[in-house]
């Protein structure tokens, strides 16, 4: 088995005295879409924050492309080839749509499949709204801008945190359609989702979290409803 792009091994994470992750281990292969599911507070977002370098962690607990990267610093993350689409989009309100996209490429200027024009090609509506303040976009457009912003650094691993949250089903379909294009360019994706059906459909592998621990993992087609239900809610 070739070395995976990302390997998480025995990862613990803390908010002050509160432990949010307990010895989590997982792997992401190059070009794969991996879904992370679990109830609220299961530790999914904490996992993404840890990979993005926003949480304290043992360096060796997270290896990306053979390099120990646990614990940040966060500003190096993007240069390594990891980009985050944060929960709630978190576009920069005082930047225009185009500026939001451009700043995505601030920390990593490498040749790759994604450029301003390619992102506009993926989400044409953003091109129409390029000069608008990011705050004036609809929720779905904001989500597209947040994904576009992350793509601008031509990441090898894209971390997506709750990208369907609060969006209409038709918009969610559009967003998930774009993920297929992103995968086609060879980018690996970690998809944190509350919507289990959506996550199972889009992913090559599923990890289920419960109270900060990995409770189940496997290929979507191998997992039974019952097993997922137990892994998700406990019992």
């Amino acid at each position: 088995m070739p070395e995976p792009l990302l390997e998480v091994h025995g990862l613990d994470a803390f908010y002050g005295d509160f432990q949010a992750l307990f010895g989590v281990s997982m792997r992401v292969a190059t070009g794969a879409i991996v879904a992370v599911i679990g109830a609220n507070g299961a530790g999914k977002s904490t996992l993404l924050k840890s990979i993005a370098g926003l949480m304290d962690a043992q360096a060796e607990a997270i290896r990306f492309d053979g390099v120990a990267i646990g614990g940040g610093p966060a500003y190096r993350t993007v240069a390594r080839g990891i980009a985050l689409v944060p929960e709630g989009r978190r576009l920069f309100p005082s930047l225009t749509v185009e500026e939001n996209l451009l700043i995505g490429g601030h920390g990593r200027k490498v040749a790759g499949p994604w450029s301003l024009e390619r992102v506009y090609g993926l989400f044409p509506v953003l091109k129409q709204r390029r000069a608008s303040a990011a705050t004036t976009l609809s929720g779905g457009q904001q989500q597209m801008a947040a994904i576009g912003r992350a793509l601008m650094s031509n990441p090898r691993l894209l971390l997506c945190d709750e990208i369907s949250l609060g969006l209409a089903p038709i918009v969610i379909a559009d967003i998930y359609a774009s993920l297929a294009h992103i995968k086609a360019e060879g980018t690996s994706v970690i998809l944190v989702e509350q919507d289990i059906v959506q996550a199972m459909k889009a992913s090559d592998r599923v990890y289920c979290f419960q109270e900060g621990r990995l409770s189940l993992s496997g290929r979507p087609q191998d997992l039974t409803r019952d097993a997922i239900h137990r892994a998700y809610f406990g019992g």
């Binding site: 993350t77 920069f92 700043i103 601030h106 912003r149 650094s153």
Partner: peptide, 23 residues
């Protein structure tokens, strides 16, 4: 780009770092 980084940092420190901005 410098001004863009100034404004982004002012807006959202955490996400600005993830853009590769060394705050």
């Amino acid at each position: 780009p410098l001004g863009r980084a100034f404004r982004a940092t002012s807006d959202d420190l955490e996400i600005a770092q993830l853009m590769g901005i060394e705050v």
